[in-house]
Amino acid sequence: MPEMREITIVEALREALAEEMSRDPTVFLMGEDIGRANGVFNVTAGLQDEFGKERVIDTPISEAGFTGMGVGAALTGMRPVIEILFCDFMTLAMDQIVNQAAKLHYMTGGQAKVPLVIRTLMGAGRGAAAQHSQSLHAWVAHIPGLKVVMPSTPYDAKGLLKSAIRDDNPVVFFEDKMSYQVKGLVPVGEYTIPLGVADVKRVGGDVTFIATSSMVQVALAAAEMLAQEGISAEVVDPRTLKPLDKETILESVKKTGRVVIIDEGYLSYGVTAEIAAIIADEAFDYLDAPVKRLGAMDVPVPMVPVLEQATVPNAEQLVTTARSLFGRRY
């Protein structure tokens, strides 16, 4: 067993960035207030002091511009990691992400490579209202050519970010702002986690929760509550939406026969619908109950906490939903 210590997701991300920058001189960071100011959420704290202004670049407030520049730098031998503060602001850079970064490898018949990482924040919970609280990962997961990563623990955050930086494709890396201070065990030494491998966060036999990012903690809390009632829930964290580890998801569903998918994106046309469709398609015969989904309500995220909190799924809702799958027994 490697030596472990407990750190937060913020610290895990910072370690990943620092290690990759030390390992590979072509890795550099670019974003708003990431340097002297240490990053709005302190993820990049100290990195400009360590690696200099040339490799930790404070940009103007020009999301389209510096995302496009990330594409250009990636095409020409660098490995930029750019930060778009809130994923709500990805909208300003959508052409660069969707039409340029995602498509260049294909459109050039395999000539061009775009090893670009876009780190961005998702999630409600800070009373930040409708333009600073969305979870827009489904938008990019919709696009062939992009990879999409959503870690939920410090261990995953570090290992996945390192793999994202080493990947030769554009990767959008979603960080949940309410999970930044979540703590967990992380090995002292070097490790990476391959993109496309789900993680079973809790083993159970009666029902599967497929939970992403912020919703993993919710699913674990619900599983704990259900255990009191004698229902054993398994929690599967896909960790990356693209590539998606269908095998692990299907294996769990085939074992339990019951499934709730929970994700902080808007419920309609989102990640939960996609995973539900895969299960319906490939594990229908194993199901003992309908596939259930929980997502953010289809509403602009309201500011006032009493409303805001109601828009995001919680453990009680998940417990109720799970119970409903055992209609005859409970």
């Binding site: 389209a64 995302t67 496009g68 520049m69 594409v71 095409l75 000539q111």
Partner: peptide, 27 residues
Amino acid sequence: ADLSLGILGANGVVGGGFGIATGAALS
């Protein structure tokens, strides 16, 4: 495009080369 000749590509989006060119210059 011909990456081997430094031709980073035509573009179907009007103005689509601005970011790429400036990023290549940064690189």
